[in-house]
């Protein structure tokens, strides 16, 4: 039986492929420092962080917005850095896991994650922590079930979820109750 198939059903008229795109200049603030990058439009913010800036704390777990390992804060909001282009971040303020601690003092969420053993392999952890920072900032989570739902965009294959909830709960409980009623 012969079933010749093309390059995977890609029957598009094969035009001469376009040359690789030229790099563009992008200026943004990363973890408090102003950076200028030269990246092609097809570079995701995630790859720019990992490859161009050697900020490998932000992880690539799927590259398709389906796992949350790449979560960073852009202008204070948690997003998936794999699904945004570096050129789209022009002028933005980006905070990654490397920017959360101040000097030797860990961010309370980082402390809590260690204390509650909220990770095993550690690969999803930076994304979990950045996501949790965003969650606390958003102020919509009141109960443990809220935390579970609003942290569901961060997969953890080691299954550290109960400890992740405990770590976030620990930091939430330690915060002054400033969010009451203001969130919605």
């Amino acid at each position: 039986m012969s079933q010749p198939t093309g390059p995977a059903f890609q029957g598009h008229a094969q035009k001469q492929p376009a040359p690789p795109p030229d790099a563009m200049e992008v200026s943004l603030t990363i973890n408090g420092s102003r950076k200028t990058l030269h990246v092609a439009p097809w570079t995701s913010l995630l790859d720019a962080l990992r490859l161009h800036l050697d900020l490998t704390g932000t992880k690539k777990g799927c590259d398709h917005g389906q796992c949350g390992a790449c979560t960073v804060l852009v202008d204070g909001r948690r997003i998936n850095s794999c699904l945004t282009l570096a050129v789209m971040a022009e002028g933005r303020t980006v905070t990654t896991i490397e920017g959360l601690a101040s000097g030797d003092a860990l961010h309370p969420l980082q402390e809590a994650f260690v204390e509650q053993d909220a990770f095993q392999c550690g690969y999803c952890t930076p994304g979990q922590i950045c996501s949790a920072v965003g969650l606390l900032e958003e102020g919509h989570a009141k109960s443990d079930d809220d935390i579970r739902e609003l942290m569901s965009g961060n997969l953890c294959r080691c299954g550290a979820y109960p400890n992740i909830v405990a770590a976030i709960r620990q930091v939430m409980d330690a915060q002054p109750a400033a969010n009451d009623g203001g969130a919605s």
């Binding site: 990992r50 900020l55 490998t56 704390g57 932000t58 992880k59 690539k60 990654t96 896991i97 490397e98 959360l100 601690a101 860990l106 980082q110 994650f113 260690v114 053993d117 990770f119 550690g122 690969y123 952890t125 930076p126 922590i129």
Partner: peptide, 14 residues
């Protein structure tokens, strides 16, 4: 733990 929560732990592609 500290390496893992600060992004300092390096994995194969890093």
């Amino acid at each position: 733990g500290r390496l893992k929560v600060t992004g300092g732990a390096k994995y194969a592609a890093e």
